[in-house]
Structure formats: structure tokens, C-alpha cells
């Protein structure tokens, strides 16, 4: 069974290259941006995440909101298993597919096809399994003949199409998306959204960090508001966004999601 259980987890980064002495004060809050910096140790430590408790189950579509440096990307990395908590514990059960930085794990000098294979291998697939999926990925990403071109000829949006094509083709159980995917055009976003919805319904959990109300609304139903590395509020997306922003961002939008989706379809079809 797919599950994410995070209990009182902390992520603390030691900063080895900072001048220890200059930071030897009490705890300094770095204004609005960034986590807190604890300085009682010899090496300064940035408390990127503090005392996070989170439990996700099959079908959960969680949005992460918060200002820059609030810990959204760090939390995604905690959920992917890249960072193991320095205190507390994180249990992640399920096949994880992260899309964080699109340049990583992609070689600009080799073709889109080869990059599909490599990215798949990174996500735990075999070469044969990926070869069987290339047609499907080519069709979904609409990249056509570009797939035989070196990746350096791709635009950002095209790379995202490729990355989304790969992760959605391999049936991941836990899909972690960082804000970067906003660079695709609206028509493709609708297509991607439907596919992601299917994916979550079928098999798993989606966690999406973004500043775009539009994307969050399309992909998520619950939300966590992170502030200085702590969970400030957790609950239904609209409520959390309302207290995060100080107003209801969805006022005036069509309340019903399916209607909204219908509108999108009409808007993009010529």
C-alpha cells in the first residue's frame, strides 16, 4: 500500500563554508525568506524543515504553498528519500518519481530517445521496459521527430514535456512535482493534468509545490502551508490558500472543477 508517514521530522543543513564566528549570535531569523539558522553548534546549521508531521495515503493530492525558502523543495526531497531526516522519521512506501530540476539526469548532447531511456533507468526501469514505452511517450509529449535530435536543441517547455512523459508512463505511485512544470503551454497542461489525475486515481499520491493558484487548483485538493520550515496550516486547498494569501483566490472562478476543465478544453480547441 502506498503511504508516506513523516513524524516530527527535521532537516538541518550544516553550513561548512560560512564563517562560524560571524554567525555566533543567538538564533537569527533571516527576514521573510529562508529557514532559521541555529548557531549553538560549532558549525552553523540551517533548519530547513522543523518538526514536520505528515501522513499521506492513496489518492491524496497535496499542494505545497509558502514563500520562497519556506522549505517546499526540501520537503519534496524529504518525501522522495533524498534527504533522510536528521531528527524524527520518514517512512516512504511506494515507487517515487520526482520532477525537480529538469536539467539533471538529462544529457544535452544525446537525443531525446536516449534521454528517455536514461531517465527511465534512473527511475528504476529497465532498458527494455523503457524501449517498450518510447512510442507512448513520443505520442504524449508530441515531440515527434525532435526525439531524434540532441536535447540541447529543446526548449524548456519541450524538456518538461519529455520529463512528464517519462514519469507518467512508468506508473509511479508517488509523484513529486516542483514548480518548474509551469513552463508548458496551456494546451499541454490540460493534457498533462488529465493524465496526472488518472495516475493519482489509479495508483497513488501527488505532491505539488507551486506558486500558481491555477495549477494548484487543477491538480490538488488539499494543501500544506509551509512557513520557515514549519507547517503553518494544513487542510483543504481553498481554505489553506485563503489564509496564506489573506483572500480567497478562487472567488469568481467557477466553483466546480469539472466545469472548469470543460472550459479549458473549449478554450484550447480551435
Amino acid at each position: 500500500m502506498v503511504h508516506i508517514d513523516v513524524q516530527n521530522a527535521w532537516v538541518e543543513f550544516p553550513i561548512f563554508d560560512a564563517k562560524t564566528r560571524s554567525l555566533k549570535k543567538t538564533v537569527i531569523g533571516l527576514g521573510k525568506a529562508g529557514g532559521k539558522i541555529g548557531t549553538d553548534q560549532r558549525v552553523p546549521v540551517i533548519e530547513a524543515l522543523r518538526d514536520i508531521t505528515l501522513s499521506l495515503r492513496h489518492g491524496d493530492r497535496l499542494a505545497l504553498v509558502g514563500h520562497n525558502g519556506a522549505g517546499k523543495s526540501t520537503l519534496l526531497r524529504l518525501l522522495s528519500g533524498i534527504y533522510e531526516p536528521t531528527r524524527g522519521r520518514a517512512r516512504i512506501g511506494g515507487r517515487v518519481a520526482p520532477i525537480f530540476d529538469l536539467a539533471v539526469g538529462m544529457d544535452p548532447e544525446i537525443t531525446g530517445y536516449e534521454n528517455i531511456i536514461i531517465r527511465g533507468l534512473f527511475l528504476g526501469m529497465t532498458r527494455r521496459q523503457m524501449l517498450a514505452r518510447t512510442d507512448e511517450i513520443a505520442e504524449f509529449s508530441e515531440l515527434g521527430n525532435y526525439l531524434s535530435m540532441p536535447l540541447r536543441t529543446y526548449s524548456v517547455g519541450m524538456r518538461i514535456r519529455l520529463a512528464l512523459g517519462v514519469v507518467t508512463s512508468i506508473d509511479p505511485e508517488i509523484l513529486l512535482l516542483d514548480e518548474g512544470i509551469g513552463a508548458v503551454d496551456a494546451a499541454f497542461m490540460v493534457k498533462a493534468r488529465d493524465r496526472l489525475h488518472d495516475l493519482v486515481r489509479r495508483s497513488g499520491i501527488l505532491v505539488f509545490a507551486s506558486h500558481s493558484d491555477e495549477f494548484l487548483r487543477q491538480l490538488c485538493d488539499t494543501a500544506v502551508w509551509l512557513d520557515h520550515g514549519q507547517v503553518r496550516e494544513q487542510g483543504p486547498l481553498r481554505e489553506v490558500l485563503t489564509s496564506y494569501k489573506g483572500f480567497d483566490p478562487f472567488v469568481g472562478w467557477d466553483g466546480d472543477r469539472d466545469d472548469k476543465r470543460q472550459n479549458d478544453r473549449e478554450a484550447v480547441s480551435p
Binding site: 522522495s80 528519500g81 531526516p85 522519521r89 516512504i92 515507487r95 528504476g124 526501469m125
Partner: peptide
């Protein structure tokens, strides 16, 4: 089918 993270997932402390 195996994956990096699922394989690496062992329910034991980090150390």
C-alpha cells in the same frame, strides 16, 4: 519491477 527508492526503502534507522 524494481525502483531505486522502493528497493532502497528499508524500515531501519538511517544509521
Amino acid at each position: 519491477m524494481s525502483t531505486l527508492s522502493a528497493d532502497a526503502y528499508v524500515d531501519a534507522p538511517s544509521r
